[in-house]
């Protein structure tokens, strides 16, 4: 049971990183990224290939240290975001969302079909897990929980610093009035791209944290439902534009998602086979209730971020 809880927490931390990433894009930059899962997937596969054991079936076997795999995952996701940004960031709103949706689908198909690279639908196994030999495998999840919490904390702190800095203020300025911000000497495209690349790197890192936890990766994990839709739900339930809110949203939504496993034990077998639908139903209820009762999400957006004013008074 404690193990179960811990593995829930590990995955919730990973999803929270994704939710933070999406929140940076949607909440702070106004980018409707319906393809966030692509960057998660790219990160996962990059680290799997960089750190994995040699295999005749697919590329890889570089057997690099895990930290380098994680750095590589973030960089690869960032690089792809940088390239995607050149055409995609010229679009706004709906068209941007559709472009990213298409990009996710493209990457999904590449990963699924290019066996020489990713071993296709069979996936990559035997991905090294950090500190695995140090402890009894039964307790490994606790070790990994620490790693996941560290990764989430670092992500949260870097996001908070960024959005509460003058850099974040320019992002808000762009969202509120891009024309004026442009005339005020800010290169708006560049700021939006920085935000997009940085948050995509976080999604890539989340992918790496995921593969070194499971030791195995296959395309199923990155279906649009699991890697994009759920993340959007977490952000919307938690509170768009509030980093703590979206972390809360991630833990809550993921809790309901895995918690519905318990229902299988309580209901007749004929219903239990329908568990996928029950999950969707529950998650749908959460979303509906949130939208009806707290349209801004559980925690609402923080308004002002510069703390200078108070200090000024004392000075």
């Amino acid at each position: 049971m404690v193990n179960y809880l811990s593995s829930y927490l590990v995955m919730a931390c990973i999803y929270a990183m994704l939710a933070l990433s999406l929140n940076m894009q949607w909440g702070y930059t106004g980018l409707m990224n319906f393809g966030i899962g692509a960057f998660y997937m790219v990160g996962a596969y990059t680290s799997a290939i960089l750190c994995g054991l040699p295999s005749p079936e697919h590329l890889g076997g570089f057997h690099l240290p895990i930290l380098m795999g994680m750095a590589g995952a973030a960089c690869m996701a960032g690089l792809i975001a940088y390239l995607v940004a050149i055409p995609a960031l010229k679009l706004r709103g709906g068209p941007f969302a559709i472009a990213l949706l298409a990009i996710q689908e493209t990457f999904f198909l590449i990963i699924k079909n290019e066996s020489w690279l990713t071993n296709g639908v069979w996936g990559i196994r035997d991905i090294p897990q950090p500190f695995f030999s140090l402890v009894n495998p039964r307790f490994y999840v606790f070790i990994y929980l620490i790693i996941a919490i560290v990764a989430l904390t670092l992500t949260y702190l870097s996001m908070e610093r960024a959005v509460n800095s003058p850099w974040g203020r320019v992002l808000r300025a762009i969202r509120e009035d891009e024309t004026l911000t442009d005339m005020s000497g800010k290169d708006c495209f560049n700021f939006r791209r920085q935000s997009f690349v940085f948050s995509s790197m976080v999604a890539g890192l989340a992918g790496a944290v995921y593969v070194h936890y499971t030791g195995f990766v296959s395309p199923q994990t990155f279906s649009p439902l699991m890697s994009t839709f759920l993340v959007w739900l977490m952000v919307m339930v938690g509170g768009t534009g509030n980093n703590r809110g979206v972390i809360l949203g991630a833990f809550l939504v993921w809790g309901v998602w895995v918690g519905s496993d318990f229902i299988t034990n309580l209901v007749p077998a004929s219903v239990a086979t329908q568990i996928g639908f029950i999950r969707m139903f529950l998650v749908g209820i959460i979303l509906t209730v949130t939208v009806l009762t707290r349209p801004q999400g559980l925690l609402t957006q923080k308004l002002s971020n510069i703390q200078l004013i108070e200090e000024e008074k004392h000075a």
């Binding site: 800095s165 003058p166 850099w167």
Partner: peptide, 24 residues
């Protein structure tokens, strides 16, 4: 034009040039 959700003070501070904090 202005930034409706920002304070008057922040509205003015956005335009400043060479802001160190605008680099990540």
């Amino acid at each position: 034009r202005d930034y409706p959700e920002m304070t008057v003070l922040e509205n003015l501070m956005v335009i400043c040039e060479e802001q160190l904090g605008e680099g990540l």
